[in-house]
């Protein structure tokens, strides 16, 4: 994939050089005719996670719409800030766009210094692709049959119950901390950084009392009766796991999913921005994209341009509250 894309890029570099010589690449015309060459779509996560399939689906549909190749390139690392930064710092010509998540766009700038973005003003919001809710599951032989059981025990025994998460301060950790904050609990989160798999494994082996993660990686264990899902951290029922109690039906309904978004660097020429936004709107509202989301456990929640920007600005405030709660708790 990468090697190919390099070859292709090399080929394009040659072509672009020729075009420049021929005097074809006046910038005004370039904006009107965009896109005339391959578009690179950066995914700031390693292949194999929940971010990869959705990016590739969007890229596939974007290719159909724009009639050029859209190359998906994984640029993982540093809690997704490397790949996200690569998009934000790219030349705003419409040929480099990418995926951002509510974590990489809104949470990381609060924790990490020196990133190229501090708020949603520092990049161009194009379209929201989907939400993916966090779920809480316990080993099938655990004594908690429902979320109420689990919360009752957590309340009676602060700092006793342990929940595995895929990395400290990942969204699935923050969601549990938000529950701690709202319900007055002290569930301890234990980070396992083996890409989510080890967090699930720790729950299966009974090393932790539960695991907070995402359905695509845990559904197999739930279906096989090895894990029992207690809760889904969203407002309404989760089609993929109808047994999970939506946190929206409890008093602690103020939660958040991980959101996936398409971003571009600031300063795109107006014509390009309008075309990219319009095309992305068509994609995220299409039946094909929606049925893909549904089958894979994502929740469709199309938000375009400024609506998306507003949502991310809202997350900023929520995350600040959780960070404050965690700091006070130390």
């Amino acid at each position: 994939m990468r090697f190919q894309s390099n070859l292709r890029r090399a080929a394009w570099a040659g072509f672009v050089l020729l075009a420049a010589v021929a005097g074809l690449s006046q910038s005004a015309r370039a904006a009107d005719e965009w896109p005339t060459r391959d578009i690179t779509f950066y995914v700031p996560y390693a292949p194999g996670g929940s971010t990869d399939p959705i990016s590739r689906k969007y890229a596939e549909l974007l290719e159909k719409q724009l009639k050029v190749k859209v190359i998906v390139e994984n640029k993982p690392g540093a809690s997704a800030t490397i790949g996200t930064g690569a998009v934000i710092r790219a030349t705003p010509d419409g040929y480099t766009i990418g995926l951002g998540s509510s974590s990489s766009l809104a949470y990381q700038p609060l924790e990490m210094k020196g990133l190229a973005w501090k708020s949603a003003n520092d990049y161009q919001s194009i379209a929201k692709l989907s939400d993916l809710p966090v779920i809480l599951a316990v080993p099938a032989d655990a004594r908690w049959k429902t979320l109420d059981d689990f919360i009752a025990e957590a309340k009676a025994n602060p700092r006793k119950l342990k929940v595995s998460v895929s990395g400290l301060r990942s969204i699935n950790d923050i969601v549990i901390q938000q529950l701690n904050k709202l319900a007055g609990l002290r569930i301890v989160t234990v980070p396992f950084t083996g890409g989510g798999g080890e967090a699930t494994l720790a729950a299966l082996g009974g090393r932790v009392d539960g695991s907070s993660g995402f359905a695509p990686g845990m559904k197999g264990q739930i279906d096989a009766g090895k894990l029992r899902v207690l809760a889904v951290f969203q407002q309404g029922k989760y089609d993929l796991l109808p047994d999970a109690k939506p946190i929206g039906e409890t008093p602690w309904k103020d939660t958040f999913p991980v959101g996936y978004y398409v971003i571009a660097p600031n300063g795109l020429p107006k014509a390009i921005l309008e075309k990219l936004t319009a095309v992305s709107k068509t994609i995220v509202e299409s039946d094909e994209f929606k049925s893909f989301l549904k089958a894979n456990g994502y929740t469709s929640d199309p938000k375009i341009g400024d609506d998306m920007k507003q949502e991310l600005a809202g997350y900023d405030a929520k995350f600040r509250d959780v960070i404050k709660f965690l700091d006070d708790d130390k």
Partner: peptide, 12 residues
């Protein structure tokens, strides 16, 4: 459950 990057890719 993927234990290696390659297994993660196969699961994907």
């Amino acid at each position: 459950i993927p234990f290696t990057p390659i297994a993660a890719l196969m699961i994907s």
